[in-house]
Write a protein that binds this DNA or RNA. Structure first.
Lengths: 239, 239
DNA sequence: CTCAGTACGTTTGTATGATAAATTTCGAGC
DNA sequence: GCTCGAAATTTATCATACAAACGTACTGAG
């Protein structure tokens, strides 16, 4: 699911430089070495390096000008919603601060998506949500449940018919996934939230936006509380 | 404020190809001409063309593989939240459908942002919101008011301290701006929403998230109703 | 002495041509 | 008919050269 394909050489350069910028190894205002020198130091041709620089430039991380060089741009120019930028940040940030921002985004999107899905869903889209719910019901182990859960939320998003919302969710979700998909799988009783999913499903079936919104809201709140409880427990165990 | 710099040659190629893909002139699954042929047809070198292709590839619009060629990817792979992709769509879509999706995003973000701002604002951030409000109060003409209005909403977003939300809003807002910033300026009494802005400001000052959310919600609802009224009026006049 | 204009050097921008790598397709051998 | 390999095509990468842009510094005039 990675955006940059690291099979390719310039993809590797993109990641390498991108990470160094996002992590803070290269800070805003800094001027990168000349293309020739930089290319040599990374063992690629200037052509390949420039292709990478153009991509980073499109992500808003850098800016190149003749004679002056390539400089790292201020963070408010960065394409924060870019899948790569997000994943690079996730790969570096040890603080919980950034995770909370991601969670906040999820808390905003999902209830709104549930409401929109309840308002505008087609019959086919409802079928997809229903199908995902039944897979959750039928899940016998955490792996199956996690996969079905993901497809449930995905089906709800699809039912909104708003590709901007879908895109936003998928970006945030994949970034968040790096953190607590695993902890979700280690839950003792993985199906505790099944009734709440059912409430969301029924509200969407009956086209009741506000009911769907509330149900999704409480579901996320519970999920977060559960996660916090677990984290507290594990940190206790670790200390 | 454009993301792609059309001063450069490859920037021009990016826009040209990007638009043709987003508009639908080149459809998902289509294979582009060979790089050599494409470069010649656009009067650029293969180097410049490839730099453009890499950027479009990073935006998820295309995918290149040896021997197979460069193909347009399915729309669900597109970086829908990319500033360029969004602006290219806005430049083409004649239907109101897409605008409604943008508005929906705005309706989701802004109340949530107001609530988050009320919860976490610093004193300095409050000062900025207050400053913007006073500029709105002092505005004497629609231009001044529009500028102050924008800085008010921007200040609220900044006060959330969540750069993901800021980035999302700025992308959506700049896309929406293409449409109804103008109609907002043609409003007869441009300051009709001042009391509602004050409510938002006061709620943020007093750190009342839910009050701020409601105030922002009703403000947007009014703004939309006003816009619809105007559009209906103008379409009546046109027919 | 100050300011403006111009020439120069450095760095990115663009072009060209060549070679490598990957992958599909086709053919040969079993 | 099936499998494996060779060939052809297209992208991937490289090397080199020149053009354009933009600071910088120098020079000349006021």
């Amino acid at each position: 699911m990675k955006a940059t394909d690291s099979r390719n050489l310039h993809g590797h350069v993109i990641r390498e430089l991108g990470k160094r910028i996002v992590i803070g190894d290269l800070r805003p205002g800094d001027i990168l070495p000349r293309e020739e020198a930089l290319a040599e130091s990374m063992d690629v041709s200037r052509t390949a390096l420039r292709e990478a620089l153009k991509v980073l430039s499109a992500k808003g991380l850098i800016e190149s000008r003749p004679r002056v060089g390539t400089r790292v741009r201020a963070t408010h120019f960065w394409n924060q919603l870019d899948a790569d930028v997000l994943s690079w940040r996730c790969a570096s940030m040890p603080t919980d601060d950034f995770i909370e921002k991601l969670v906040e985004m999820r808390e905003i999107i999902e209830p709104a998506a549930a409401a929109a899905a309840a308002r505008r869903r087609t019959a086919a889209q409802l079928t997809q949500v229903d199908l995902a719910y039944r897979k959750m019901e039928a899940a016998r182990d955490p792996d199956e449940w996690a996969a079905a859960d993901l497809s449930f939320h995905d089906a709800v998003l699809q039912a909104t018919g708003n590709e901007l919302m879908i895109s936003l969710f998928s970006v945030v979700e994949s970034a968040l996934g790096m953190f607590f998909v695993l902890s979700a799988k280690t839950a003792g009783d993985f199906s505790y939230s099944l009734p709440q999913h059912q409430k969301v499903l029924e509200a969407i079936r009956r086209k009741q936006p506000e009911v769907a919104r509330k149900a999704m809201q409480s579901m996320i709140a519970d999920s977060l509380a559960n996660l916090h409880k677990k984290r507290k427990g594990s940190s206790k165990k670790a200390s």
